[in-house]
Design a protein around this nucleic acid. Structure first.
Length: 415
RNA sequence: GCGGGUGUAGCUCAGUUGGUUAGAGCGCUGGUUUGUGGUACCGGAGGCCGGGGGUUCAAGUCCCCUCACUCGCCCCA
């Protein structure tokens, strides 16, 4: 026991039902995103740390205390990616040409937090990003895709809700930040420590503080939607109209600002309605200034990320997430029966899920087939070997038939 | 970073106010007349009771430390 090597804290092996659910989620995700013309991409899991300190923000929790970073045999600081949007933005910054670049990806992300239910140090996300398009239609479409995927995965309406907000244009944000800072400055004494720090660097993030005294102060704070420019208001209204038009329920939440610094305009989050758990399952928004922060180009973008484990947790354990193929067990009483076996070659050549099992005890062979949920057993025991025959039994309906070895065509008998 | 809970067989757990060789179910394995599987019955293997220290005639049980897992807070998908 003490010698066992366990997985690193906060990491998990994915196997069995969990793996089936994971594959199920991937399947729906890529199918639906492909339908909207997204192209899949895989970017490296390691990146220059600078990518995230510039994009996500130096003083976010993610960058300041949760990143796995190391110096790579010299002076390059490398890190395990804590999220994927920055990597895709990096890719787009050097590969975008014109029109829309629609990207979908998935993979492991790493954040060094205290693990708990629905929060792991290595977790998995699915992401879609649309880069290069300013139209509010895209904001709607990206939310529509999210909603479609959750539905297709079998989540029902009362399991989750959609919250949306507009953070306005970069100019609106600067403007509103000033007004908010002025207001909050009057209450410096009562603000929490973290909020005080944010007051200097990024006052917007104070809005989603969960500190009680902060909340009291924020109750009467100026609201961002009162300070949006006319253009920003129209932009946001268009999105809401499209959502309503397509029966996507949402709730406006003026406190929703997201934990990353790069968002502008639309911010949204799908949350589970279940109490007592990490409730954000999918979240994202528009990031028109992000690419300019990490490159010399200025390209708008919008996207979201969803936590695979968090979605997986919401899926029922009692469903079958795999289309199991018929499985066949080729069982023989002695290894020598497998030598120069035409049956074996047929099995290898056919598109059949199979296993070979050798045991002198016939009963063991059947028990094995049963326990491992094989649908058919192909048996060559001593008698069959002598008479050059072979037994095929359907384990589901218990019917069985004896064939001559040189006459059996497996693909014809099993389907 | 801060709090709560739990560590006993491969897995899920019992172990009474400290008291001899530490238990159950499931799983694994052998058998119930020699070639036919989900049931039934009988047998078997398998535990430094997470680790270290302490109290005691005696510790799985009480105390301290430590490690691991887990659930919350913060934050986030």
């Amino acid at each position: 026991m003490s010698n066992n090597i366990l997985p690193v804290k906060g990491t998990h092996d994915i196997f069995g039902l969990e793996m089936d659910k994971y594959n199920f989620i991937m399947d729906k995700f890529y199918k639906i995103s492909a339908k909207f013309n997204f192209q899949s991409i895989q970017t490296p899991i390691i990146e220059h740390q600078e990518l995230f300190s510039r994009s996500v923000g130096e003083d976010t929790d993610i960058v300041s205390k949760e990143m796995y970073s190391f110096v790579d045999k010299g002076d390059t600081t490398i890190c395990l990616r804590p999220e994927a949007t920055s990597s895709l933005a990096r890719f787009a910054a050097s590969n975008y040409q014109s029109g829309q670049m629609k990207l979908s990806t998935h993979g492991p992300m790493f954040r060094r937090e205290r693990p708990q239910k629905g929060r792991y140090r290595q977790f998995h996300q699915i992401n879609i990003e649309n880069i290069g398009e300013k139209s509010s239609y895209i904001d709607f479409e990206i939310i529509l895709i999210a909603s479609t995927i959750l539905k297709e995965l079998g989540l029902v309406a009362d399991q989750y809700k959609l919250l949306i907000n507009s953070l306005g244009s970069p100019e609106d944000q600067i403007n509103y930040s000033k007004i908010l800072s002025e207001y909050l400055n009057q209450y410096r004494r009562n603000l929490s420590e973290t909020s005080l720090a944010r007051l200097e660097k990024n006052p917007l993030r104070i809005l989603d503080s969960k500190d009680k005294s902060d909340k009291d102060i924020l109750f009467n704070a100026p609201k961002i939607n009162e300070y949006l420019s006319k253009e920003s208001q129209n932009f946001f209204n268009d999105i809401k109209l499209m959502l309503t038009d397509n029966n996507i329920l949402f709730k406006e939440d003026e406190k929703l600002v997201r934990g990353l610094d790069y968002y502008t305009h639309t911010a949204f989050e799908f949350q589970t309605n279940e109490e007592k758990r990490q409730n954000a399952i999918l979240a994202g928004g528009r990031y028109d200034k992000l690419i300019n922060i990490i490159s010399s180009r200025d390209i708008p973008g919008i996207g979201w990320a969803a936590g695979v484990e968090r979605i997986s947790n919401l899926l029922s354990d009692n469903k079958n997430y795999t289309k199991i193929p018929k499985k066949i067990l080729y069982a023989v009483q002695d290894e020598s029966y497998l030598i120069n076996s035409s049956i074996l070659k047929q099995i290898y050549g056919a598109d059949i899920s199979h296993e070979i099992k050798v045991n002198k005890n016939i009963k063991k062979l059947f028990t094995y087939a049963d326990k491992n949920k094989f649908n058919f057993i192909l048996l060559i025991g001593e008698e069959e070997f002598k008479s050059k025959s072979i037994l095929l039994k359907n384990l589901d309906d218990k019917s069985q038939k004896l064939y001559r070895q040189n006459e059996l065509l497996i693909v014809n008998e099993i389907r």
